[in-house]
């Protein structure tokens, strides 16, 4: 649902990740977070015109 909504906002779906990780899966948690961080870093900053008047 959130993915569909973010798409309407023009946000790349690669910027959202949904994963289930058990408390015992520390390594997996760390690698998922690292991968996500790299993925978002590769996408670069949001080209976001927030408060300004002109596009």
């Amino acid at each position: 649902m959130l993915k569909k909504m973010l798409e309407q906002f023009g946000i790349d779906e690669k910027r959202l990740m949904l994963e289930w990780v058990s408390a015992s899966e520390g390594d997996r948690f760390a690698s998922i977070v690292n991968n996500m961080t790299e993925q978002v870093r590769a996408l670069g900053p949001l080209n976001w015109n927030q408060g300004g008047k002109h596009g």
């Binding site: 023009g10 946000i11 080209n47 927030q50």
Partner: peptide, 8 residues
Amino acid sequence: LKRRIPQK
């Protein structure tokens, strides 16, 4: 988010 992000 305030608005849609304009696509490059």
